[in-house]
Design a protein around this nucleic acid. Structure first.
Lengths: 339, 339
DNA sequence: GGGAGCAACTATAACGGTTTCGTGTTGAAA
DNA sequence: TTTCAACACGAAACCGTTATAGTTGCTCCC
């Protein structure tokens, strides 16, 4: 690789000291105007850019932040990246994206490498499924102990003290179910995830509360908890076949479209026979036929706020001891599936 | 931030020199066995990890690679990230994901910052729409001139000499259209993009060739070139209304589902009245009703190979002067829309 | 004319490693 | 006893910056 031009090169070329060059480029008052001009012109000419690695070493900070997500082929997380990246870049930070692939081990390895290696200044993380299941957060607690700021988003745990960004899962679900009730639906099922997933759990709670508040009976048989995303078809089919249902609230995109397909395959009509509301505003729901109503889940907003919280902490000198949790509001997007 | 433990700390604590500690941890033959053991044990105990920034500075390489993509909420690019990240991580490299958002300026800024700042060792890039339109690749040529390796994938240009990974767009399209012809379709339209997009252009060529090879007449009226992804509905509607069409080949997911919706809205049946084949294997096509046949476009494979080519170049001492282009094969996934 | 004060630089240490080149101590061959 | 290699370790340079602490040379003024 061709060597990039350094301060030393400029100094030698112009017959001044390295310090002079450094200070000139920073427009220090210590240096005479003509020298400054000369140095700047030369630097410009040779397209000098300071070596960030050296600066990182000196300043003990890298201006990199890690963003750890469980899965990337997922509109929601993709928009989180977009939001975080945009904000961070504007503040002069690079985002290093890491995938845990829902694996505890990979999450740990990622964090370890980046934290101890001094590669990043802080972390943005959404927990992997496995981590939530194992309920083991030592790797995160250690990050905190090292004094590295950490912001958790979406899939969080209250066992780690740090800044957090979540959406109002429970209230979002509540609104979705209320909407279905207002449309006259009485037998509303929910397709959710296993309880150890914070998000699925909260949404189920919102579902139950909405039923209660509207004087509908809560029937546990209508609560389906899917274990494996990839094998959701069968249990969904079973739910639909064995119960009299006139509406479904699905906690994610995949469950919603799979449910709709199953219903349509039975010759029933959506929304006439069964109405559907999903959660998270991805392409799948928008482009389904009929299009599926959903609770909007602003991933970019979440990414932006998470990055903001992290960078704020990185830039404040004093170690702020109180942590805050930001809750992002959701709103209902009405589409054809719940007309 | 709490300071991390350094070689110096260990040295002071054990009453040996920094060099001794460094060498011990590298298991150098220069150091006596008992000293080595002592140092290693101590380092282990305090969870010492070398500071990668310092190593980067010394070695003049960072073990970071940049992956620049135009858009992230896009299953294809998301899978590319996954493939590249997986391979790079396994080789000890971090992936810094940057989004150009289809903007020339952001692409240039990204590259400039990372290249001159010494943050990354090399680039993986898929050109932004705007860059392809402007036909201006100086920022990439400069990267090459600096001796930084660069691998282009998917959206490439032949005006920059570097390693490349593409899928066989033209042949993929050819196969898609041939498939439709074999199913007895005669009036096949293509919904493509403007010509400056390398990918859309190649797919259109494959379409034309397939028609010719099967003795069908090429009718330019059946070639729709969409300018704005977001405003594709109207022109697609127009195409469908004004022409007798029994099949559509769409060069991406969005065009395929939009076309299908339009056809169904007219009361026609897919695939009976109009068959559809798309391109790129995203969720949208898979979960559409009916599911849409498509040309598989292995993003993860592309990412993996691109990362592999880049890292190979980074690790080889000699400056290899010949560049290669890897072509990834596609295959047809038959689904309901072209039965 | 001998500081004081200032402008305009330069030298140096430090950031945390790696690496080359010593150097002091052994023990054994000559 | 001398010599000399092997061993075990240390000193110092270097990567590219920045911050702090000098060092000049000059003017000004009592």
């Amino acid at each position: 690789m061709k060597r990039k031009i350094t301060l030393k090169d400029i100094a030698k070329e112009l017959g001044v000291s390295i310090s002079t060059v450094s200070k000139s480029l920073k427009d220090s008052a210590e240096i005479g105007d003509d020298t400054k001009q000369k140095v700047k012109a030369f630097a410009e000419l040779y397209n000098y850019k300071p070596n960030n690695i050296a600066i990182s070493l000196k300043n003990r900070r890298t201006k990199n932040i890690a963003l750890i997500i469980p899965e990337i082929v997922h509109d929601f997380f993709a928009t989180v990246i977009r939001g975080a990246e945009r904000f961070a870049n504007a503040k002069g930070y690079n985002v290093i994206v890491c995938l845990s692939n829902e694996s505890f081990d990979k999450e740990v390895v990622n964090i370890d490498t980046l934290a101890h290696g001094g590669v990043v200044d802080g972390f943005l993380i959404s927990l992997s499924k496995e981590t939530q299941m194992r309920n083991d957060f030592n790797h995160l607690i250690e990050v905190e102990n090292q004094g590295m700021p950490l912001v958790m988003f979406d899939r969080i745990t209250d066992q780690v003290l740090c800044d957090k960004v979540i959406i109002d899962d429970s209230r979002g679900a509540y609104n979705a179910v209320s909407h279905l009730i207002e449309k006259g639906r009485k037998n509303i099922a929910i397709i959710s995830t296993k309880d150890y997933l914070s998000v699925g759990n909260l949404r189920t709670q919102g579902y139950i509360k909405a039923l209660g508040d509207h004087g509908l009976e809560y029937n546990p048989d209508l609560v389906l908890r899917i274990e494996e995303m990839e094998e959701c078809e069968e249990p969904i089919l079973e739910l639909i076949n064995n119960h009299k249902i006139d509406a479904i609230f699905a906690v994610n995109e995949l469950f919603a479209v799979t449910a709709m397909k199953a219903i349509q395959a039975k010759g029933k009509n959506v929304p006439k026979d069964v109405a559907i509301v999903g959660f998270s505003d991805g392409k799948l729901l928008k482009h389904a036929t009929p299009s599926i109503s959903t609770i909007e889940q602003r991933g970019d907003e979440m990414g932006r706020i998470a990055a903001q919280m992290l960078i704020k902490r990185l830039q404040s000198e004093k170690e702020e001891e109180s942590f805050s949790t930001r809750v992002i509001k959701t709103s209902l997007i009405e589409r054809e599936s719940s007309k």
